[in-house]
Nucleic acid binder design. Structure first.
Lengths: 255, 255
DNA sequence: CACTAAATGTTATAATTTTAACATTACAAT
DNA sequence: ATTGTAATGTTAAAATTATAACATTTAGTG
């Protein structure tokens, strides 16, 4: 017998390629077989198509949910990040033009932007862009270039001058390491130019970092701590860690 | 009473940001409320999070399924689009640098790029970028600018010159209307500049359109039919529709 | 052409999810 | 404090989905 199963799988994959869901009964009708057969097909290839509440969804295809369950622990980790961003949110005002850095730290902040009437977000990160693209009240400006998967962001040789031309109210910058002596650093060198350009162009510079980043140094240095106007953090000891004789010390958010 | 509902939504969104699913009971425990409350929260915001077989999934997040049901008709419609792109795929060669236009027509083509060893994709569309970003074998170049939700694409005053600087092998262009006399057109004027610039910069220009587009004229004209080297279509009558006395007639893919 | 084995279909049953109605709690304003 | 309103919780019933066991069909083989 020919492998009709593979043929059906291909049909269903095609149907789902653009990223929707297909009800089991429709899939069965589409393939001209019983629901049970579709069930068996799909269960035999969980890495291709998954069955979720009677509906077929792609498991892995570009732009589609890998269907696995988050543990409660994983989920609560995001809660902590979310709290950090709730502090950062207090610095945003109606009508602001915000520069949003790449990384996962600032993602929860994007979910809070729907509370404003009108904002503009400038970013060079794909994940940030996606989060903002669905908000009808936020204008999105994307800085393009070559894509770097590790940071989900773009870089180009013209990015610095593109940023110079923009009017930025507040630059929200994230980092992988913060050290009073050795400065603020990140993992990837391609992030340095956009970060520095945004800081130069912005009226206010905010560093958003969780407690785990203090005393850490990463490969790519991009600024000293006192170049920032505000440090937003969830670390109770941050004020002590960042105490400095310099006059240009940033405000540190209380825990 | 404070709006705890929005807070829970943000928490759940954050938990789901990396693209998994969260069981209703875990979501309830995570937020410290009953399952019914989560149900109500989620049902009130179907465009943010959907409930699918007792599990929460993002409706829109980066690389994640928008959860709506494909009808059988829609599903087979995608099959048609997919077939169209299978024809378009035959023009791609190993190592190519491709310009990919915005719209939904060319999305199935992105799913087929993993069959190549190495490619480069240049685009100004967010949905295309998301599809390509997950392919390890494809270099992605994004053209940024202000985001236009209707076409999920970006536009800027420097895009034309950005494209001029790029070396494009093949430009895959989509359209909303194709007419021999009135030319090739799309809905939105902001798409005109990138389309024209890409066609000018490319070594080969391919128009990819399904049968429904022939004889249709849309607001924004951007090219005449014979500016294209190839017309990829699933319309059997296309050769007749596009017959022309001009010498520069494009190749038309056989049905 | 009968035989075998795999694939598919059918049915009944179990488990789960959804819905609806109503009870309870929490908050705000007086 | 008291009351009204909105939010949340609880429960039971309905609808849906999943599983398992067994019947039937189909394709390949001698």
């Amino acid at each position: 017998m020919k492998d009709r199963s593979a043929l059906r799988l291909a049909t269903l994959q095609e149907a789902l390629a653009s990223g929707g869901t297909l009800h089991l009964r429709d899939a069965a009708e589409l393939c001209g077989v019983s629901e049970m057969t579709i069930r068996r097909d799909v269960n035999a290839h969980p890495q291709v198509i998954s069955l979720l509440g009677g509906r077929l969804v792609m498991a892995h295809t570009p732009g589609v949910t890998p269907v696995y369950d988050l543990t409660e622990q994983q989920a609560s980790h995001y809660q902590a990040k979310s709290r950090l961003c709730q502090r950062a949110r207090r610095f945003i005002e109606e009508g602001d033009t915000l520069f949003i850095d790449c990384g996962s730290t600032l993602m929860p902040l994007m979910n809070q932007l729907s509370e404003f009437r009108e904002l503009t977000v400038i970013t060079y990160a794909l994940n940030v862009a996606n989060a903002v693209a669905v908000l009808p009240n936020v204008r999105l400006v994307m800085l393009g270039g070559l894509f770097y998967p590790t940071s989900q962001s773009f870089a180009s040789d013209t990015m610095a001058e593109s940023i110079e031309r923009l009017g930025i109210n507040k630059a929200f910058i994230s980092a992988a390491g913060v050290d009073l002596q050795r400065g603020v650093s990140c993992f990837h060198f391609h992030e340095v130019v956009p970060k520095q350009a945004a800081m130069a162009a912005a009226m206010q510079r905010l560093l958003v970092v969780d407690a785990s980043k203090f005393g850490v140094v990463r490969p790519a240095y991009f600024a000293s701590v006192n170049e920032f106007d505000v440090v937003v953090t969830d670390d109770d000891d941050a004020p002590a860690l960042l105490r400095d004789e310099h006059s240009g010390q940033p405000t540190i958010t209380a825990p």
